[in-house]
Amino acid sequence: MKGTLLINLGSPESPTPKDVKPYLDEFLMDKYVIDVPFLLRALLVRGIILRKRPEDSAEAYSKIWWEEGSPLIVLSKRMFEKVKPQLGIPAALSMRYGNPDIYSGLKELADKGVTEVLLFPLYPHHAMSSTVTVLEKAEEVRKKHFPNMKFSSVPAFYNKPDYIQNLADSIKSSLATYDYDHLLFSYHGLPERHIRKTDITKSHCKIDGSCCNTLSPAHAFCYRHQCYETTKLVTEVLGIPKEKYSVTFQSRLAGDKWLEPYTDVEINKMPAKGIKKLAVVTPAFVADCLETLEEIAMRAKEEFEENGGEEFLAVPCLNDGDDWCKTVSNWINDWAK
């Protein structure tokens, strides 16, 4: 029997340092997130980062926490509850970090007699720290607990027409009554070395401004190319001229060269360039979370206004929109045929 497991990032159990710390430990100790040898990673994470970060992160989470819980978890569940009735096969929802974990999702499917699972990472763009770690963790769990299960997976859907149309419609709806000066596409950042590590040609990705526009097999796994391609396709659908939008990358950590330009740096410079009304969309996420609700809708908005900006609009993610839920269910049903 076929079934599907939808997998998103995850969240702490509560916005408190006590619950944030184990969540951050699981996340940051992932070799696909901080990709250095284990002992160095443990020194960085457990010896340095986790001494102060849980308190800071808990404060940020407390600003966005809903009565029902973590926005990412709540919105993922709402989306799942809309998708599930539209499917012809059993389905479960898991998170890569925290709960409900991947083991519980696969067990739920196994208990229903499922032997062939479509893994659906809820990330539009391929990256080591998102898609790869989800698939690797699922395989680890399968080998240990469900050796007779077979896996298929949904590849990055950054350029799929249905997704592009859903994203374009969502942006269009948000901008319908907002006379913006500029539309910023802010994607989650990555260390540049992650881009080079996922280059299957071992030679194409130079991050020089031209490689992302030069045809290559590397693009199937290149996060940077896929972000720019999503932006190009969406702006073509919406008819937005090139001078009216730009691409940046957010959420960088200190100590490494990350993808540029940086969202916070660029936003803070915009008012001086005459951009007084800014709209920001975050297509790397399909559900609103800490990075969209606190980092963009709160912190970036505050800094934009402090630097002379007048109006700031954070465009919501696709979340549990009916059209997006229909797209997800269609993809799963097409696989199950």
Rank of each mutant, 00 (worst) to 15 (best):
K2W: 02
T4I: 14
L5E: 08
L5I: 07
S11K: 08
P12M: 05
D19M: 00
F27R: 02
M29Q: 15
D30K: 05
K31M: 09
D35S: 15
V36D: 14
L40H: 11
L40F: 14
R41P: 15
L44S: 09
G47I: 11
R51K: 15
P54L: 02
P54C: 03
I64P: 12
W65F: 03
W66H: 06
G69I: 10
P71L: 04
S76R: 04
F80W: 07
P90I: 06
Y97T: 12
D101T: 01
Y103C: 03
L106R: 02
E108N: 12
G113W: 03
T115N: 13
E116W: 01
V117F: 08
V117Q: 03
L118Q: 07
L122V: 05
P124E: 07
H125S: 00
A127K: 07
L135Y: 07
E136R: 03
V141E: 10
K143V: 07
H145L: 02
P147N: 00
N148R: 12
M149L: 15
M149Y: 07
K150Y: 08
F151E: 06
S152A: 12
P155S: 13
Y158R: 01
P161R: 03
Y163S: 06
Y163D: 10
S170Y: 01
S170H: 09
I171F: 03
Y178Q: 06
H182Q: 06
L183S: 12
S186R: 01
H188L: 03
L190C: 12
I195A: 10
R196I: 14
S203Q: 12
S210V: 13
N213F: 12
Y223T: 09
Y223G: 11
H225N: 10
Y228M: 09
Y228E: 14
E229N: 11
V234W: 01
K242T: 13
S246W: 02
D256W: 12
E260Q: 13
T263V: 10
D264V: 00
I267Q: 04
P271D: 08
P271F: 05
K273G: 02
I275L: 05
L278M: 04
V281A: 13
A284G: 15
V286N: 05
V286S: 03
A287Q: 13
C289T: 06
T292Q: 01
E294G: 03
M298G: 00
A300G: 06
A300S: 15
A300D: 14
K301W: 05
E306F: 06
E306P: 01
G309T: 09
E310S: 13
P316N: 09
T327Q: 04
W331Y: 07
N333Q: 09
W335R: 04
A336G: 15
